[in-house]
Design a binder for these strands. Sequence first.
DNA 1: CAGTTATCAGGTCAAGCGTCCCGGACTCTT
DNA 2: AAGAGTCCGGGACGCTTGACCTGATAACTG
Lengths: 212, 212
Amino acid sequence: MARMPSAERRRQLTEAAIRVMTRDGVAKTTTRAIAAEAGVSLSVFHYCFESKQALVESVITTIGDHYVTVVKEALRPRETLEDTVRAGFQAYWDHVRAHPDEHMLTYELTQYALRRPGFEHLARRQHEMYGEAYSDLIEQLRRGMDLRLRVPVTVLARYLAAMTDGLTLNYLVLGDRAAWTGVLDTVTAHVASLVTDDVPAAAPEPPDRAPR
Amino acid sequence: MARMPSAERRRQLTEAAIRVMTRDGVAKTTTRAIAAEAGVSLSVFHYCFESKQALVESVITTIGDHYVTVVKEALRPRETLEDTVRAGFQAYWDHVRAHPDEHMLTYELTQYALRRPGFEHLARRQHEMYGEAYSDLIEQLRRGMDLRLRVPVTVLARYLAAMTDGLTLNYLVLGDRAAWTGVLDTVTAHVASLVTDDVPAAAPEPPDRAPR
DNA sequence: CAGTTATCAGGTCAAGCGTCCCGGACTCTT
DNA sequence: AAGAGTCCGGGACGCTTGACCTGATAACTG
């Protein structure tokens, strides 16, 4: 087999693992399956990775970076604010529809990390990255167009992250048989209303708060 | 060991399995662990259940019913519409905070079902039940108070289901360190705005039309 | 050239898994 | 009391898993 530096071999094994996980699920992804997918012997696996956990760690960070890239690609400034939000959601949604397994994998890995003691931080870091990605996006958009927010950036970012998470998961379970367009339209309108173009908002929104 | 009819034994084993799954995760839940938790020998397990899959099937439906009950309990008609929505979210959220493992389990089981060929329908049925539960809730609320919807019931129901799903998952990952109150307030206001209180009198909230 | 690095096939190992069998004990009928 | 049906327990079987090892071989590196 083609010889290559272990760093590259590590990358190759990581990608092979992602393919297997995407295809067969995390539970069925054994070291042997990964090695076979990468076309190398099992010994090479242990030559490149201390243990299976080390490989999984590599997979999680790689997948996470990939996911953030997808989200950032989705949202680009358009003509109007409404268009921007709508196009962003649409782009993201198209990606979900095109690569459902990939998104499913992120959920699986999140749970895998949450259950494995000492791995929780990976799941947490990943989701914090999602939030930051949305925050960056909003900030960038705010500079591009001239707009004001009715809610703090962090709140909007978290809202978007949780929202897309929930919608995606529900799509993965229910598939196309459900009428998602209506839901997406509702969400789009809502988000657009939270990010006002100019309008001197009638509702400042902060008043009474019942601290739990 | 106390002798008991297999039907009851089945129920007992199902509950034991739920306890183990909640505590240790689905992946670590073995037939031996379940039997030990129930305090019976391994053979009793296979006397009561054809296979482990049959047990899991029982677990999924049981957990699903339980979850729907929680959601239905959460939303009860209050004084005003806003109060009703807020109290509903609050009750649900309190339940999540009190029993995070339980909610985590529902996500795990969903994925387990989605990955196991021939089990997808269980995950699907469960999520459809969530949607129906919300639909029922909305209908019931609509009869109780007099209100109109700005969006179809199914859309609102799906939106609520996906929303709570996403928020819950994010809470399970990030925990209390994130500021969820802001997000919950935003969502509450949004949902309340989708379900208009018919009475236009004494509007405490700012009217959505801009007076010149 | 020698030395380091990467690969390979093959096997071993302990642990854990789902499943199954068989003998005994209990309970209900007759 | 006897028999049939039901429940329980211990133990074993066959398989997979992650981890590790050995020893040989090929390829870069200096």
